[in-house]
């Protein structure tokens, strides 16, 4: 446990040193405030529209940004140590491979969680203070749900980045694969699902189809933040499938948790078999 914390501590102080933590927090706060005030600009008015609409917009933006940031933060976790020549040295210390990877996860995970909490937390407080007739309780619940799911989504992509990082032997390859993962989950997956829907002309099993959404953590994340306001009407595109999912919010949370636990377990397993 001690060595896990030692590794995590170094990652945390690295992200403080290179200003990652500050930069991400700042980006999150700016975006959240921008969306809160100008999110309704398309409908011809400036000012805070409503909590559900703000959260929905934030979540739509989050699915682009969070995976990208998480992948960038973590893609070189192991392959970077190897290229830097420090992996071999670390492995001669009383430190198992699992401890190293878990320490990295703790460090990167905390960095992302802190940035999310600070960035969106500040935005949430600002909305509560500056908007006059906002229902504080429902805003707090929505913000809490949004921050928690954002952190889980980020952890999922950190774990996915590790799967790459323990497998490849060169940093540029890891970066390329990380981008491919981002591209797949954020852009391609929904398109493929939509294509399947249209092409099958409704012949595809209606029970199976909604479950396919669970195969993409970004879809689970969006469902969680939008469905929560029983706003099935707001679900557009493939997400309308989510209305048919018989698992409820708890299932969606579980889905997000599994989406970081399973890739992390895979990364640990693959790392154990890596030749150093």
């Amino acid at each position: 446990m001690n060595s896990i914390w030692t590794i995590a501590r170094k990652e945390l102080s690295d992200s403080l040193r290179n200003r990652w933590l500050m930069a991400i927090s700042l980006v999150f706060a700016t975006l959240a405030l921008g969306i809160a005030w100008f999110g309704a600009a398309a409908s011809g008015q400036v000012g805070y529209a409503s909590t559900p609409a703000t959260i929905a917009s934030l979540a739509s933006l989050g699915i682009f940004l969070i995976p990208l940031i998480a992948l960038l933060l973590a893609y070189d976790a192991i392959v970077g140590e190897e290229e830097g020549g420090t992996l071999l040295l670390l492995m001669t210390y009383p430190l198992s491979r699992s401890q190293l990877l878990l320490g990295k996860f703790l460090g990167h995970g905390l960095t992302l969680a802190l940035a999310t909490l600070i960035g969106f937390g500040v935005a949430g407080v600002a909305i509560a203070l500056l908007v006059e007739d906002v229902a504080i309780a429902s805003l707090a619940v929505a913000m809490f749900r949004f921050i928690a799911s954002t952190v889980l989504l980020g952890w999922g992509f950190i774990a996915l980045a590790y799967v790459i990082s323990v497998r490849v032997s060169e940093k540029p390859i890891a970066a390329g694969l990380a981008l491919a993962i981002w591209f797949f989950f954020v852009l391609i997956f929904d398109l493929m699902l939509l294509g399947t829907l249209v092409a099958s002309e409704g012949k595809f099993s209606a029970e199976l189809l909604p479950w396919l959404l669970m195969l993409n953590p970004t879809d689970i994340y969006r469902l969680l933040n939008i469905v929560a306001f029983d706003g099935a009407a707001q679900l557009s595109g493939v997400l309308s499938l989510g209305a048919d999912l018989p698992i409820g919010a708890f299932g969606l949370w579980l889905g997000l948790v599994l989406w970081f636990v399973i890739p992390l377990a895979c990364a640990l397993l693959l790392f154990r078999n890596r030749r150093i």
């Binding site: 040193r17 020549g85 040295l89």
Partner: peptide, 24 residues
């Protein structure tokens, strides 16, 4: 190790402290 390398952005003292913690 042959051709030993370290974290370039850390100072010598920080690196040695990191490894000392790892080694107990």
């Amino acid at each position: 190790p042959e051709n030993v390398m370290f974290y370039p952005q850390l100072t010598g003292r920080e690196i040695l402290s990191h490894f000392a913690r790892l080694k107990g």
